[in-house]
């Protein structure tokens, strides 16, 4: 195979791969949205807020973690998470739930929870 031909084929492969990657990139973006937007959106989003401490429980039938998330504006939403309770969950400053709203069940099905805890890894005591 001639080198020039190689370059052309290589270029096409790279461009095609990057095109596919961009497409996958756009479709898997999970933007930060508000609770009301999350309920309207069809696809995966992330919502940040604080957990209602009293609402945290394990649903004994489904064995999923269920809790209520309240965002800054005060809007609330029930969240279901199928997994182990993350470390520091109860006392997190902020919880980010990544997943999608299930219209039929009226619950946000979280695939992943990010816990923003001031003592984890980095101290909040920056200024002491």
């Amino acid at each position: 195979m001639k080198i020039k031909k190689m370059h052309i084929i290589g270029g096409i492969v790279i461009i095609a791969a990057m095109g596919l990657a961009m497409n996958a990139f756009r479709s898997s973006l999970t933007p930060y949205v508000t609770v009301s937007d999350a309920k309207a959106y069809g696809h995966s989003v992330q919502v940040a807020g604080i957990t209602e401490k009293e609402s945290i429980r394990y649903a004994l039938d489904t064995q999923k973690l269920v809790f209520t998330l309240r965002e800054d504006g005060g809007a609330e939403m029930a969240i279901e998470y199928d997994g182990a309770k993350p470390a520091n969950f109860e006392d997190a400053d902020k919880v980010v739930a990544i997943g999608r709203w299930d219209k039929n069940k009226g619950i946000f099905e979280a695939k992943q929870l990010l816990i923003k805890c001031p003592t984890k890894y980095e101290g909040r005591v920056k200024g002491v």
Binding site: A24, L29, Y32, I98
Partner: peptide, 15 residues
């Protein structure tokens, strides 16, 4: 461009 967003982990697996 807009609101900051991250990609789901499925993106990395898919690509």
């Amino acid at each position: 461009m807009e609101k900051p967003a991250s990609v789901s982990t499925a993106f990395y697996v898919k690509t």
